[in-house]
Amino acid sequence: NRRVIAMPSVRKYAREKGVDIRLVQGTGKNGRVLKEDIDAWLAG
């Protein structure tokens, strides 16, 4: 149960899109989840 590193704005964006942020692979520094990662996850 790893802790997800993401800015609050990215967490909010994921919530609005209905994405469980824990399932998204972060590509930022130290595995940080970026807004682009959410978009990529939604695109498949």
Rank of each mutant, 00 (worst) to 15 (best):
N1G: 12
N1Q: 09
R2H: 15
R2K: 15
R2M: 10
R2A: 07
R2S: 13
R2G: 15
R3G: 15
R3P: 15
R3C: 07
V4R: 03
V4L: 05
V4K: 05
I5T: 08
I5P: 05
I5Q: 07
A6Q: 02
A6Y: 03
A6G: 02
A6L: 02
A6V: 04
A6K: 02
A6M: 02
M7H: 15
M7Q: 14
M7E: 11
M7N: 15
M7L: 14
M7D: 15
P8Y: 07
P8H: 09
P8L: 09
S9V: 12
S9G: 11
S9M: 11
S9H: 15
S9F: 10
S9C: 14
V10R: 01
V10Q: 02
V10G: 01
V10K: 01
V10F: 01
V10H: 02
R11I: 06
R11T: 03
R11M: 04
R11H: 06
R11G: 02
K12W: 07
K12I: 08
K12H: 07
K12R: 12
K12M: 06
Y13I: 04
Y13R: 03
Y13D: 02
Y13H: 08
Y13P: 00
A14G: 05
A14Y: 01
A14V: 01
A14I: 01
A14S: 09
R15K: 13
R15L: 10
R15W: 09
R15F: 09
E16V: 12
E16S: 13
E16F: 12
E16D: 11
E16H: 11
E16Q: 12
E16I: 11
K17I: 10
K17Y: 08
K17H: 14
K17E: 08
G18C: 08
G18N: 12
G18A: 11
G18I: 05
G18W: 09
G18E: 10
G18F: 10
V19C: 05
V19H: 01
V19A: 06
V19E: 00
V19S: 02
D20V: 06
D20F: 05
D20A: 08
D20G: 04
D20T: 05
D20P: 09
I21S: 02
I21V: 07
I21D: 01
I21M: 05
I21H: 03
R22Q: 13
R22V: 10
R22E: 10
R22L: 11
R22K: 10
R22M: 11
R22A: 10
R22Y: 14
R22C: 10
L23D: 11
L23R: 13
L23S: 11
L23I: 12
L23N: 11
L23G: 10
L23P: 02
V24Y: 01
V24K: 01
V24M: 07
V24L: 09
V24S: 01
V24H: 01
V24D: 00
V24A: 05
V24I: 12
V24R: 01
Q25D: 14
Q25R: 13
Q25I: 13
Q25N: 14
Q25A: 13
Q25H: 13
G26R: 03
G26C: 03
G26K: 03
G26I: 02
T27F: 04
T27P: 02
T27L: 05
T27H: 10
T27V: 03
T27E: 03
G28S: 05
G28M: 03
G28A: 07
K29V: 09
K29T: 11
K29A: 10
K29P: 09
K29S: 10
N30K: 14
N30T: 08
N30S: 14
N30F: 13
G31W: 07
G31E: 09
G31M: 09
R32D: 04
R32V: 05
R32W: 08
V33P: 02
V33Q: 02
V33F: 01
V33K: 03
V33N: 00
L34T: 10
L34E: 12
L34S: 09
L34D: 08
K35C: 06
E36T: 14
E36Q: 15
E36M: 14
D37L: 00
D37Q: 01
D37S: 02
I38Q: 00
I38F: 00
I38W: 00
D39V: 09
D39S: 06
A40W: 12
A40K: 14
A40R: 14
A40P: 01
A40I: 12
W41L: 07
W41K: 07
W41G: 03
W41Q: 06
W41R: 05
L42Q: 08
L42W: 08
L42I: 14
A43V: 12
A43E: 12
A43Q: 11
G44T: 13
G44R: 13
G44I: 12
G44C: 07
G44W: 13
